[in-house]
Amino acid sequence: MLSDTARKLLMIMTHSANHHAHMPSLPEMERLSGRMPVPIKAAMQELVQENYIEWNPNMPPETAIIIEGWERSDSRFKRHHSTPQDIQWGVDGSNIEYWTKY
């Protein structure tokens, strides 16, 4: 599970790469994320360790390559998929719960 800063930077980098066709620079990341350079570099290192991006810490952030643009789902949190119940409207007005219960 990613930290908030790493998640935000991944979102910013993915958006910039897909919509603006470039990777953001460090000043752009500061402006867009509201974070300082040290936490940004730590978050980028976290993204490298978690295998979301490829990046050399000695290079500028614009040289990063996105491997996976969205955070992976956490297996600890299971989503329950409920199936919607089919509402059968009777011609004779047999299903009037909507009108009587609200």
Rank of each mutant, 00 (worst) to 15 (best):
A42R: 12
I67S: 04
N56Y: 04
N51E: 13
P39T: 09
E62N: 08
I40Q: 02
Q88G: 01
P61K: 03
L47Y: 03
W70M: 09
M23W: 05
S73T: 05
W55H: 11
I96G: 01
S82Y: 14
Q88V: 14
A64H: 02
L47S: 04
P60D: 04
G90F: 09
E62G: 04
M44D: 02
W89F: 12
I87C: 05
I53R: 07
M36I: 00
V48Q: 03
I65C: 03
E46K: 05
K41T: 03
P24I: 11
E28C: 04
P57R: 00
L47E: 02
E54T: 07
E68N: 12
E46G: 06
N95M: 05
R35L: 08
H80A: 11
Q49E: 15
S73A: 07
H80D: 06
L47G: 03
S94A: 11
Q49H: 09
I87Q: 06
F77G: 00
I87F: 11
N58M: 09
P39A: 09
E28G: 02
P27D: 11
P60T: 11
I67A: 02
I67N: 11
I66A: 04
M44Q: 03
T63Q: 13
D92E: 13
A42S: 09
Y52P: 03
A64S: 11
L47K: 00
S82F: 15
V38E: 15
E28M: 13
E71S: 10
P27A: 10
D74S: 15
M23G: 01
L32M: 11
A43G: 06
I66V: 14
A21W: 07
W70V: 14
R31C: 06
G34C: 08
D74F: 09
R31G: 07
E62D: 08
M36S: 15
Q45W: 02
P61F: 08
E68R: 15
K41V: 03
D92Q: 07
H20P: 00
T63M: 05
N51Q: 13
E54Q: 10
E30K: 15
V48C: 12
W89Y: 10
M59Q: 13
Q88A: 08
Q85L: 14
V38T: 15
I40P: 03
